[in-house]
C-alpha cells in the first residue's frame, strides 16, 4: 500500500490525501488499479487531472501543502516517507492555521477555527475587532476583518460540501458533517440557522429513500473493496446501479461499475 494511503487511514479527516495518476491511463483504469489493490474505502481523493507539476524526476513524487495551501515539502514519496510523517506531525501539533504575522489578539480566532469551533472563532475575531488595543490597532482591526471573512468562507465551504453530499448521493456523510457543524456553530444563531436549513432537507420525507439506497450501496462498496475480484459483488453493484438509475446514489454506483468493469491492460 502506498504510504500516502496509509497516512490517510491513520490521520482520517485531519489531513487530505490526493492521489494524482500522471501516466497514460484513463481515470477509470487508474482507480481500477486502486480498487484491485484494495486501496479504496478511505477518504483519499483519486484524480487523473493535471493539478500542478511536482517538478520532480520520476514517480512516485509528492508535494505536502500546509493548512494555507503552501508547499512545505516535496520530493520522492518513497525516499522521503519519514520526513513527510515528521512534517505532518509538526503541522498538526503546531498549526493554528493563522497566516504568518497575524497579531496575537486575532490568532485565537484561527486556533478556534482549527479546533473546529467556528462560533467561538467568530467571537474571538469580533472581540479583537471591537477592542484592538492601543498597540497597532489598525493592523489588529484589519487582521480581525480578514479572520471574519476566513471564518465565513470556512462555514460556506462546509455548507456547500454538505449540500453537494446531499444532492450527489452521500446523505450519511452529509449527516455526519452537519452533526459536527452543528456543534461547531453552537451559540451563533445566524450560523446555526444555515446549518439547520440543510439538516431539514436531510430529514425531508423524500430523502429517506435516498438514505436507504445509500446504506445499501455502502454495504456493496464495503464488500467490493474487501474482495475486488468477487464477481457476485460486481453483479450486485451493477444490479443496484440499474435499479437506482434515477437517483443520485444510482449515479454513484454507475461510476463504480465503470471502475470495477475495467479490463486489465
Amino acid at each position: 500500500m502506498p504510504a500516502a494511503i496509509k497516512l490517510q487511514e491513520e490521520y482520517g479527516d485531519a489531513i487530505q490525501v490526493v492521489l494524482v495518476h500522471s501516466q497514460n491511463a484513463t481515470p477509470e483504469q487508474a482507480v481500477n488499479v486502486a480498487l484491485k489493490a484494495k486501496w479504496l474505502g478511505n477518504q483519499a481523493i483519486w484524480t487523473s487531472d493535471y493539478l500542478f507539476s511536482s517538478g520532480g524526476n520520476g514517480l512516485p513524487a509528492f508535494a505536502l501543502l500546509d493548512a494555507e495551501g503552501k508547499v512545505v515539502l516535496k520530493g520522492n514519496s518513497n525516499s522521503m516517507k519519514g520526513k513527510i510523517e515528521d512534517e505532518l506531525e509538526r503541522m498538526l501539533k503546531e498549526a493554528s492555521g493563522a497566516p504568518e504575522g497575524t497579531p496575537k489578539a486575532v490568532a485565537k480566532a484561527y486556533s478556534e477555527m482549527a479546533k473546529g469551533n467556528l462560533a467561538k472563532a467568530m467571537v474571538a475575531a469580533e472581540k479583537a475587532k471591537a477592542k484592538p488595543g492601543s498597540k497597532e490597532p489598525d493592523a489588529v482591526i484589519e487582521a480581525a476583518e480578514i479572520a471574519l471573512i476566513t471564518i465565513q468562507e470556512n462555514l460556506d465551504s462546509q455548507l456547500a460540501r454538505s449540500t453537494w453530499m446531499l444532492e450527489n448521493g452521500y446523505p450519511m456523510d452529509a449527516e455526519a458533517k452537519l452533526k459536527t457543524l452543528s456543534k461547531s456553530v453552537k451559540g451563533n444563531e445566524a450560523m446555526a440557522a444555515k446549518v439547520a436549513e440543510i439538516q431539514a432537507k436531510l430529514e425531508a420525507e423524500e430523502m429517506q429513500e435516498i438514505i436507504k439506497a445509500a446504506k445499501d450501496l455502502a454495504k456493496i462498496e464495503s464488500k467490493l473493496y474487501d474482495s475486488p475480484k468477487d464477481e457476485k459483488a460486481k453483479k450486485k453493484l451493477a444490479d443496484f446501479a440499474s435499479e437506482n438509475a434515477g437517483n443520485a446514489v444510482g449515479k454513484r454506483a454507475s461510476k463504480l461499475v465503470e471502475v470495477a468493469s475495467v479490463v486489465s491492460r
Binding site: 494524482v20 471502475v259 491492460r265
Partner: peptide, 30 residues
C-alpha cells in the same frame, strides 16, 4: 481544481475547499 472524473471527492472542488488542513498530493503511475 478537480474535474468530474475525479473519484471520491465528496464535494471537494478545489484547493479552496481544503483550506485548514494539510494536503498530501501524491503523484503515482500504474
Amino acid at each position: 481544481t478537480f474535474g468530474e472524473k475525479s473519484f471520491n471527492t465528496q464535494g471537494v472542488k478545489s484547493q479552496a475547499d481544503l483550506r485548514g488542513k494539510p494536503v498530501l498530493v501524491d503523484f503515482w503511475g500504474i
